[in-house]
């Protein structure tokens, strides 16, 4: 099921990629990579600062004041979704069959669900009528999960190049981690 969806996705992208021609010009790929690294710094700088504040760093500063950094973290995330898509839409087989990319997407999902949990569970204590300076314990757990998830995303992203999928031989498993073509 998942394997056939992967094959379909790779062939669909290979047939109609809107950016492949652009990305194969001389400096497009390195420029997109540089943007991807700049975006990740912005993301970790802003979201990491907020996580550190929830964990108790610079405790005298209101949580809501540090939260004003979050839009900059989202800007970094947007830069990285855009530049990241450029890579996937140019060499889909290198990512969609890559186990390190699978883990990266998994941890991106964990980071996303975890961030939503913060707003569902801890919004009142952080931004309510009388916000407390010390974040509630569950917000601290969320902050720690956030820092770990983003670091794992970076590690998995950096590892993609060392797990390039080779041609499939023998048992293929539930999720393809090799190139069936």
């Amino acid at each position: 099921m998942i394997a056939s969806a992967q094959v379909w996705l790779v062939s669909a992208i290979e047939r109609h990629s809107p950016v492949a021609d652009l990305m194969r010009t001389a400096w497009a790929w390195p420029i997109a990579e540089s943007l991807h690294f700049l975006g990740l710094c912005l993301l970790v700088g802003a979201i990491g600062s907020f996580d550190l504040r929830l964990l108790g760093v610079a405790r005298s500063v209101p949580i809501a004041a540090v939260h004003r950094l979050i839009p900059w973290g989202l800007l970094g995330f947007a830069i990285n979704v855009a530049s990241g898509l450029m890579f996937v839409l140019t060499e889909p087989d290198q990512y969609i069959y890559n186990p390190s990319f699978h883990l990266k997407v998994l941890f991106l999902g964990i980071a996303g669900v975890n961030a939503s949990l913060f707003y569902v569970t801890s919004f009142q204590q952080a931004f309510g009528r009388s916000p407390s300076l010390d974040a509630p314990r569950r917000a601290k757990v969320i902050a720690l999960v956030s820092l770990c998830a983003w670091m794992t995303v970076i590690v998995c992203g950096r590892m993609i190049t060392f797990y390039r999928p080779g041609p499939c031989v023998g048992d293929r498993g539930l999720i393809l981690t090799c190139d069936p073509d």
């Binding site: 690294f37 710094c41 990491g48 500063v61 809501a64 004003r68 950094l69 900059w72 970076i154 950096r158």
Partner: peptide
Amino acid sequence: AIGMAFAAGLAAVLDLRILGVAPGVP
């Protein structure tokens, strides 16, 4: 890559704060 994210990322956040972002943070 992780060291870069924290060194450059936190330096950039300090720079942005100086330039007027998140003015409530001393």
